[in-house]
Amino acid sequence: MDDLDRAIVVATQEGLPLSLRPYDDVARSVGLEPADVINRMEKMLKSGVIRRNGVVPNHYALGYKANGMTVWDVPDDQISALGRRVGALDFVSHCYHRPRHLPDWPYNLFCMVHGRDHESVEKHTRQILMILGDAARDHRILYSTRILKKSGLRLVA
C-alpha cells in the first residue's frame, strides 16, 4: 500500500458514484487515470486489502432490526481455531478476538449476529454455542437498544 492506494481507499470508502463511469470520478479526485485506479484496486483485492466489491446492504433497513453483539470467554490457546469456524457462519457479520479487561470484562471473542428479532439472534447464538462447546466458559448477548450514531468510515488522508 502506498500513498496513492491510500488515496483510493479514502476516495471510495463512502461508496462509488452511481454514474456510468464511476472510476472516472475516483481517478480525477486522486489524480490518476481510471485504468490505474482499477489496476490498483485489482491488486488490493488480490492481496486481501479489499475483501469484496459490490453492494453493501443496510441490515437494519432491510428488516434485520435485532443486532446482538455476542461475547464469549474462550481459552486463549483455542481462540484462533474456534474464531475461524464461527467467523465463517453466514449470520455473523463481524468476528474478532479482543482483549479481556479483568475483572470488568472477561470476554475475548466478539461475534456480531444480525436477525429479524431477538428469537432469531438467540437461535444463532445457540448455533455458535454448539461450535464452541465446552470452550465457551461464559457468554452474553448485548443487544443494541439504540443507535446513537452510525456513519460510514470517514477518514481523511
Binding site: 481507499v9 471510495t12 461508496g15 462509488l16 486489502v49 479489499i50 469484496r52 453492494v55 446492504p57 433497513a61
Partner: peptide, 10 residues
C-alpha cells in the same frame, strides 16, 4: 436499503 456500492476494505 443500501449503505453504498463499492469496495469493502479490511
Amino acid at each position: 436499503a443500501l449503505s453504498r456500492v463499492g469496495a469493502v476494505f479490511k
